[in-house]
Design a protein around this nucleic acid. Structure first.
Lengths: 161, 161
DNA sequence: CTTAATAAGGATATTTAATATCCTTAAGGA
DNA sequence: TCCTTAAGGATATTAAATATCCTTATTAAG
């Protein structure tokens, strides 16, 4: 079980956008080159972030993306779910009902106890992701990031993450 | 991101084995028919459980699998990891170092802050799974399982889960 | 006003992982 | 001796992840 690489990309992109001066945008092209990932595919992840309302975009030259909320309002869970979806990592196919010893059509009262445990664990994972925002990330990062912020021709910013 | 169906199968098989009278075995064939899943593929999951030391097997007629420990000693995490592996759901490819603004070969002091958050969440998931054993599952199940335990020709037991 | 850059998104190709089947071997019980 | 079983290697099939290509509408810059 593995999260898609787009999740890593989206998290890093949001981290960079969180450090962007107010009003500025970063394009897919720049974000892709900054992270060394394919532009077209990264674009799908950014579209997911946009549809989730985490970032907003503008067209044309000097267009691109910026955060739609403050870093403190965007959690890791928001970003992960925007890319990976909200469905649980465990899918219960109710194989308990395949038991040929059971009379046909039998259904128990409650949910499958096994599935419940798995869903609880999934919830614990999401709770943890929800407890960290891009602002929290910044606090950690500020300690380790070198002071020399570069500003190349395309307006790249130093990778903050 | 989704766990493989073998995880569900393995959990249900262990749940059934936990209710088996001492000394008895259940074969792959019976476990497969009991849950309505392909025998050959389920076999791979059971082999994983065996290699992890969660179940033990015996050959020949009336052979099969039984738990290698008490239900209280086998956690959900044990079973999930036996099938799905122990590697984190998040893989850090250190795309932060792809930044062309960084001088070649630059490496930060600590681990990627983003990866750390993701790994912490993964740990929270595993901690939750580790906190539940097959014995705990039994407590829940006893409340809902019908009293009529069937004992068909092949020695099937009522699906407990 | 024109031109180039951009996001959005549909269509499709490629690659990888999950799922499933088949077969052989060695061991155990009747 | 014969049948049943677990173990596991090899291979096929299916689905998902990854990636590319292309078109359209929009926007800013010149």
């Amino acid at each position: 079980m593995q999260l898609r690489n787009q999740v890593e990309w989206a998290l890093h992109c949001c981290s960079v956008l969180a450090g962007l001066p107010a009003g500025r945008y970063l394009s897919t092209k720049v974000l892709a080159e900054l992270h060394g990932v394919p532009k077209e595919y990264l674009s799908k992840a950014l579209q997911g972030l946009s549809q989730a309302g985490l970032v907003e975009s503008t067209l044309g030259p000097s267009g691109g993306y910026r955060l739609a909320k403050t870093p403190g309002q965007i959690t890791f869970l928001d970003i992960v779910e925007a890319v990976e979806g909200k469905t649980s990592s465990f899918v219960c196919d109710n194989i308990r009902y395949n038991n040929p010893c059971l009379r046909k059509g039998y259904r128990a009262d409650g949910a499958c106890a096994i599935a419940q445990v798995m869903w609880d664990a999934d919830q614990a994972w999401r709770d943890k992701l929800r407890s960290v925002s891009l602002a929290d990330l910044g606090k950690t990062l500020r300690k380790t990031v070198p002071a020399d912020i570069l500003d190349k021709t395309q307006g790249w910013v130093l990778e903050r993450s």
